[in-house]
């Protein structure tokens, strides 16, 4: 069964690499969905000696939230904010890919050097989890559109839950469901926020969200909606 875990780990690594170079938002969202589905399958493959009802319920909910609901929410937010592509990212796609490959190498080297996870499901899984987290953080920092940052957060969260699954951590039904619910509501609220940003600023470039700061006078009248001066 361990072979399956390795296959899924590698597949997840590939999704990371694709995500970091994809410029079309719809494309990115689809790959996040694929990542969610792979992650949902992972716990089922890990427990060879049969699994209980609780695990099955969790797996089904996990798959449906991460594979279907969250991507749908993101697509809806994308349509409402009327964006299609991530133009002019801060870090170009080639550079991003090279950076991520370097990060992957560092993660694998780090885990090997410190022999970090003797208890893990497979030797490849923990470094892949770290790589996924790094990918998420990198996308949050290096991309311009606010919606891409939401996608980055999802990838980051996927990395964390992959770490949890691979280290065979079990937190109980309530905690797992709570975490899922939180992520779901977060993406929902972010969708609303994106819509509002688009309406107030008529774009969703997060680097231009800089009207609040410590150096200038606050707008003469706080009631003034004109932030960009």
């Amino acid at each position: 069964m361990n072979a399956f875990v390795e296959i899924i780990s590698v597949a997840l690594l590939i999704t990371d690499l694709v995500l970091v170079i994809s410029g079309r938002l719809l494309h990115s969202i689809r790959w996040v969905a694929i990542q969610g589905i792979l992650l949902g399958l992972l716990p089922l493959l890990l427990h060879e000696s049969g699994f209980g009802v609780q695990m099955l319920i969790l797996a089904v909910i996990n798959l449906s939230v991460k594979g279907i609901l969250l991507p749908l929410l993101l697509i809806r937010a994308m349509r409402k904010a009327d964006v299609r592509r991530e133009l002019e990212p801060f870090v170009g796609y080639t550079a991003s890919l090279i950076l991520l490959l370097a990060a992957t190498a560092i993660c694998f080297g780090f885990c090997r050097y410190w022999n970090i996870a003797p208890g893990a499901a497979s030797p490849a899984s923990v470094p892949v989890a770290f790589t996924t987290m790094v990918t998420g953080l990198f996308i949050i920092i290096a991309r311009r559109k606010a919606i891409t940052q939401a996608i980055g957060f999802l990838i980051f969260e996927n990395g964390i839950s992959m770490f949890g699954i691979c280290m065979m951590l079990e937190h109980g039904l309530m905690v797992e469901l709570g975490i899922l619910l939180d992520v779901f509501v977060l993406v929902f609220v972010m969708g609303i926020a994106l819509f509002n940003i688009n309406r107030e600023f008529s774009h969703i470039d997060s680097d231009k969200l800089n009207s609040l700061g410590d150096w200038d006078l606050p707008a003469q009248n706080h009631k003034d909606g004109e932030a960009e001066q």
Partner: peptide, 8 residues
């Protein structure tokens, strides 16, 4: 209060 600042 809906304004550009608060959304940001």
């Amino acid at each position: 209060r809906r304004s550009a600042g608060s959304v940001e």
